[in-house]
Amino acid sequence: MDDSSRRKRICFVLKVRQDRLEEYKLRHQAVWPDMQAALRESGWHNYSLFLRDDGLLVGYLETDDFAAAQERMARTEVNARWQAEMAPYFEDLDGRPDEGMKPLPEVFHLD
């Protein structure tokens, strides 16, 4: 059994401000290499973001333990910088963007 078969699939939604959509997309075309490395080292796999024209952001990742992966990221200096820079892009947040990532319950999966 490889590692990917034990991973949990995580999906979450956030809302990007309508007036910041294009800038948000541009920022994600050049995610800092040290941020990408920190995500990988913290246990984030197959991480993708999808953005609808109205600002609905859907995130998907696979990880062994989402809470632990979030905690490992929260301890990195690069994540603190990234979250501070990303916070103004989002609506309806109570805290940092990574704190607003609440997993949606999975109701179906086709293997």
Rank of each mutant, 00 (worst) to 15 (best):
Phe90Glu: 03
Ala67Val: 04
Asn79Gln: 15
Tyr89Lys: 05
Glu77Ser: 05
Glu71Ser: 08
Ala84Leu: 14
Asp64Phe: 04
Ala84Asp: 13
Arg96Trp: 14
Arg96Val: 12
Met86Ile: 10
Met73Glu: 02
Asp92Tyr: 12
Asp98Val: 08
Ala68Val: 13
Ala84Asn: 11
Asp94Asn: 15
Asp65Phe: 02
Pro97Cys: 10
Glu62Cys: 01
Asp98Thr: 04
Asp92Phe: 07
Glu71Val: 05
Glu91Gly: 03
Asp64Leu: 06
Arg96Asn: 14
Ala69Gly: 06
Gly59Phe: 01
Arg75Tyr: 08
Asp65His: 12
Met86Gln: 15
Gly95His: 09
Trp82Lys: 07
Arg81Tyr: 12
Arg81Trp: 13
Trp82Ala: 12
Ala74Ile: 06
Gly95Tyr: 07
Trp82Ile: 10
Met73His: 04
Ala84Val: 03
Trp82Val: 12
Asn79Glu: 14
Glu99Trp: 09
Glu71Asp: 10
Phe66His: 09
Pro88Ser: 03
Met73Ala: 09
Arg96Leu: 15
Phe90Asn: 01
Gln70His: 11
Glu85Thr: 11
Asp94Pro: 04
Thr76Cys: 09
Leu61Asp: 02
Leu61Cys: 07
Ala80Met: 09
Thr76Gln: 03
Tyr60Gln: 06
Gln83Asp: 15
Arg72Phe: 01
Glu62Ile: 04
Leu61Tyr: 06
Asn79Thr: 15
Ala68Lys: 08
Arg72Leu: 02
Asn79Trp: 10
Arg81Gly: 08
Thr76Glu: 10
Ala84Met: 12
Ala68Cys: 03
Val78Asp: 09
Leu61His: 05
Gln83Glu: 14
Tyr89Cys: 04
Asp94Arg: 14
Glu62Thr: 02
Gly95Thr: 13
Arg75Ala: 12
Glu91Gln: 09
Gln83Phe: 08
Met86Asp: 15
Tyr89Asp: 06
Val78Ser: 06
Trp82Ser: 13
Thr76Tyr: 07
Ala69Glu: 00
Glu62Pro: 01
Glu71Asn: 11
Glu77His: 10
Ala80Asp: 07
Asp92Ser: 12
Glu71Cys: 07
Ala68Ile: 11
Arg72Glu: 03
Arg75Phe: 02
Gln70Val: 11
Met73Trp: 04
Arg75Thr: 06
Glu99His: 11
Glu77Thr: 13
Ala74Trp: 05
Ala74Thr: 09
Arg96His: 11
Gly59Glu: 05
Asp64Ser: 07
